[in-house]
Design a binder for these strands. Structure first.
Length: 644
RNA sequence: GCCAAUAUAGCUCAGCUGGUAGAGCAACGGUUUCGUAAACCGUAGGUCAAGGGUUCGAGUCCCUUUAUUGGCUCCA
């Protein structure tokens, strides 16, 4: 077979491996390689090759190669666990985004103290530099081997694999594992790793199955990169919204109300700014706003199907011996509002927004700061339209969502979820609405991934995902076509033919929930909100109490101009006051001492470190107003202005 | 809900194998009036998450409950 490496070509016997080929054709190229690509396909360095092509060495900077190393690390870990705890049964152990894990069924549960022991044993295995030998077995032999080795989970896996295939295994020293690969040529090529946490995980991801123990770890090309990664995780924890919420006095959760967050004065300022902004752009986009009741009777929830299907997630109560529920969704109330009158096709589309407070009894283990709560305000809206209007409305919602995310500088991911197994509605309707979502996304040239079968039972949906400081992804915006409720509630409009027709309904949020969005926002900015969002935009700091009067006058002037200002007249040194304002991440610190008091100016210091002395009150106020009004993400006074 | 861990002053944390609670910051009182990330001295502050048990004696050991954290499952 003819192999090319970096433009050099040579004929090799079939079965030659990448490692040997690199040695022969381009020694340098092979040196840092972890794996290789043959015609773009990932191959192991030791894997016998059988076809012509171009071979490229790939190192740790390549995602595929990183995956290979981490996958091998998971095998090394499994091997170490088997050595230390011979009763452990192996489940599965893949590489994941930032590392790897392996699931074990342990005779005695692992404790956090076991992790260093496992690491030590892994170190030993790596030092011995075992080769990763691949071999294949026909299914029957494979089953026999796993039964002999007493690995019931592997037996189950094999039984579920397709009949005719040969199954591949990897052996490193005494350790053998059923595995598709690929792997590093030998364990010694793992340069830096760390076991990061211990968790529970259901066998095959189903809560009906036994819970296994999962050990998470990560591996890197060198110790420095590993350290840098761990350091980065530590840094990210400082941006955790739960911590910042308390430190910046924005919001918090208390034991007395699990999943029911408190918003304090500063958090409310932020929240109200968001709501104002939300109302403004929705008015512009042709939405009206309504408010529907928090509590509605059982009959309504029976009609919507919630009483039957989601009862255990709803808070219910009795009023005058009748059953009621606190709303888990706004749509049934919104639909009642729609049905208050008869609509003409000329009225459509109708876009009705609601900042609706909903309550859902989330499982205790699912709660997570502001990201997953039991009471939250959805920035909901329901759009009612004819079939012909679907695509335009979808595009309209997308534009609105995109505009909002851009205003905050959020990167986001779009997912399209299609018809699930259990669903309502006709094939025709599913086809029509799924196609409408696809068409809209394609026409907008939005990159998206498809989650097959992940849609709501009543319709397909588009979800917008944002990331928190640790890279966990949270659904915020959503756009769902609903083919269930219009039927259940017998909704109609009168068409040009004078007949009654069923409107199509879109259910959507842009921010998702105010709570989650504020959580994401807090982490995104690390608490250092841009001026237009900052609960406190400036703090006036006096140097001595001779400046108090000038400081008070400035505060009054700024408040008159609509700016949010605090004043620090305490008998403390200026360094102390600056430090506190800095820790509160206040955008601008305005220092007034004898000099400024006399001149009627201020010395400005931004939290990013820009300094401007002798600034007039007029210029200060006008510039700040301009920055806030434009919703700018960067400060008016940059660090370069220092020399001014 | 499940697996594991954690819960000590407003915050961050110390308190080894059981002998009756400690620091820094914050708060309060005083001194200091100071030029850009922590002035100094002093005072007060705790049913050690809640409940039960073992023990002469429990913050420490055991059980139950609650909450939180990391995952899993779930997220209409």
């Amino acid at each position: 077979m003819l192999i090319t490496v970096n433009g050099k070509q040579k004929e090799f016997d079939k079965g030659a491996n990448a490692l040997d080929i690199f040695k022969e054709l381009d020694k340098e190229a092979g040196k840092g390689a972890i794996a290789a690509r043959l015609n773009g396909e990932l191959v192991e360095l030791m894997q016998p090759l059988t076809e012509d092509g171009t071979l490229e060495p790939i190192g740790f900077e390549d995602d595929g190669a990183r995956h290979v190393m981490r996958h091998t690390a998971s095998h090394v870990m499994a091997s170490a666990v088997k050595t230390l705890f011979p009763g452990a049964k192996l489940a599965i152990g893949p590489a994941i985004d930032n590392g790897f894990y392996y699931d074990f069924d342990m005779p005695e549960p692992l404790t956090p103290e076991d992790l260093p022991k496992i690491e030590k044993e892994m170190q030993r295995i790596i030092k011995r530099n075992h080769r990763e030998e691949r071999f294949t077995l026909p299914r029957v032999e494979a089953l026999k081997l796993m039964e002999e080795m007493n690995e019931p989970y592997k037996v189950e896996l094999i039984n579920d694999l397709p009949e005719d295939e040969e199954l591949s295994f990897y052996r490193q020293g005494d350790f053998v594992d059923l595995c598709a690969g690929p792997h590093l040529p030998s364990t010694g090529r793992i340069k830096a790793f760390k076991l990061t946490s211990l968790a529970g995980a259901y066998w095959r991801g189903s809560e009906k199955n036994k819970m296994l123990q999962r050990v998470y770890g990560t591996a890197f090309n060198d110790k420095e990169s590993l350290e840098a990664y761990l350091q980065q995780i530590e840094e990210a924890k400082k941006r955790d919204h739960r911590r910042l919420g308390r430190e910046l006095d924005l919001f918090d959760l208390m034991e007395e109300g699990p999943g029911f967050p408190f918003f304090y004065a500063k958090g409310m300022v932020l929240r109200n700014i968001l709501e104002d902004y939300w109302r403004k752009i929705h008015r512009k986009a042709g939405y009206e706003e309504i408010k529907t009741p928090l509590i509605l009777n059982r009959e309504l929830w029976e009609q919507s199907g919630h009483w039957e299907n989601y009862r255990e997630n709803m808070y219910t109560l009795k009023i005058d011996d009748e059953d009621y529920a606190i709303k888990p969704m706004n749509c049934p109330g919104g639909i009642l509002a729609y049905k208050r009158r008869l609509w003409s096709y000329r009225d459509l589309p109708v876009r009705v927004g609601e900042l609706g407070l909903v309550h859902r009894h989330e499982k205790s283990g699912a709660l997570h700061g502001l990201m997953r709560v039991r009471a939250f305000t959805q920035d909901d809206a329901h759009l009612y339209m004819t079939k012909e209007q679907i695509k335009d409305e979808i595009m309209g919602v997308y534009h609105l969502t995109n505009q909002v995310y851009q205003a905050f500088g959020f990167p986001y991911k779009v997912e399209l979820s299609t018809r699930p197994e259990k669903s309502v509605g006709t094939d025709e309707m599913w086809e029509l609405s799924t196609q409408a979502l696809k068409d809209a996304l394609d026409e907008l040239k939005v990159p998206y991934t498809i989650n097959e079968g992940d849609g709501a039972f009543y319709g397909p949906k588009i979800d917008f995902h944002l990331q928190d400081s640790l890279g966990r992804s949270w659904q915020c915006g959503t756009l769902q076509l609903d083919m269930n409720l219009p039927d259940r509630f017998d909704m109609e409009y009168v068409g040009p033919d004078g007949e009654k027709h069923r409107p199509v309904m879109i259910h959507r949020t842009v921010l998702g929930s105010m709570e989650r969005f504020i959580g994401i926002l807090t982490e995104h900015f690390g608490g250092a909100f841009p001026l237009w969002l900052a609960p406190v935009q400036a703090r006036i700091l006096t140097i001595t109490d001779r400046a108090n009067e000038a400081a008070r006058a400035l505060k009054e002037q700024m408040e008159e101009a609509g700016l949010r200002v605090e004043i620090d007249l305490r008998n403390e040194k200026i360094g102390f006051k600056v430090r506190e304002a800095q820790m509160m991440k206040i955008p601008y610190m305005l220092v007034i001492g004898d000099r400024e008091a006399e001149e009627g100016t201020v010395s400005l210091r931004s939290r990013q470190g820009a300094n401007v002395n002798g600034l007039s009150h007029q210029e200060l106020i006008e510039t700040m107003q301009k920055e806030a009004d434009s919703r700018s993400l960067s400060p008016s006074w940059q660090a370069e202005a220092r020399d001014k």
